[in-house]
Amino acid sequence: MTLATERLLLRQWRPGDREPFAAMNADPVVMRHFPRVMTSAESDGLADRLEAGIAERGWGLWAVEVRAGGAFAGFIGLQPVTNPSMPVAPAVEIGWRLAAGFQGQGYATEGARRVVGYAFDEIALPELVSFTTVQNRASRRVMEKLGMTHDPADDFDHPTVPADWAERRHVLYRLRRSP
């Protein structure tokens, strides 16, 4: 399954994505709202899991390719939230992570809009959630552009990050499918 927008292809992962994905996940600018950067081995493991999830379900966090030139830009897509320690579980999260050189160009919003259409119109999910650190204003703006709503009563301390991490508090946004 490949989803297309005017400027992007959201597609299954390829072996050639591993190197730029590892560089992205090792970049302190990209990972500034995560507890730490990832090693190459951790990044490869994540890519393997994302690729397997798409193969199994037909959807997931797709690799993002910029149509003009074919560059790997990051990922955008859907991810099941199944960990019972997560306050929103079970749910399906819409998420994105783009390499620094592809941020600030509207790619996250463009790709995520296509994913919302896919989630609601093609696989009939009733709701999408998205969450990030309180301080991650760029991702929060994308959530708002998608029409997602934030209820501060839903905010939570992320249970899988270090308890002493300064950005442990997360905001939760929701978007329900129109009847």
Rank of each mutant, 00 (worst) to 15 (best):
A26R: 12
V66S: 06
F131T: 03
T160V: 12
G70I: 05
S178F: 11
L125Y: 02
T2R: 03
I94Q: 06
V92R: 09
F156N: 15
L46R: 11
S40A: 15
F75E: 11
A63M: 09
L78D: 09
S43V: 09
L10N: 00
D17T: 04
A47L: 08
G147W: 10
R176I: 05
P162L: 01
R169A: 14
M1W: 04
Y118D: 07
G95I: 14
E19I: 15
R97N: 05
G69F: 05
G69C: 04
P15I: 03
E65I: 03
D121C: 01
D155Y: 02
F156G: 13
I94N: 05
N83W: 12
E42D: 09
E51R: 12
R32Y: 00
R57S: 05
L50S: 10
Q135T: 10
F75S: 05
R97A: 03
Q135I: 10
W96K: 00
P87K: 14
A73I: 02
G70H: 05
V161I: 15
G104K: 12
T5Y: 02
M24W: 03
E56V: 04
E6F: 02
D164F: 00
A153Q: 08
D44S: 11
V92D: 03
L146Y: 06
T39D: 09
V92K: 08
M86I: 12
T5S: 10
A4I: 06
G45V: 08
F102A: 07
I54R: 07
P20R: 09
H158I: 06
P179N: 13
L61Q: 15
R176H: 07
R57C: 09
E65G: 04
Q105T: 00
L146Q: 06
V171F: 08
R18L: 15
L78K: 09
I54F: 05
A26V: 07
L61Y: 10
G16Q: 11
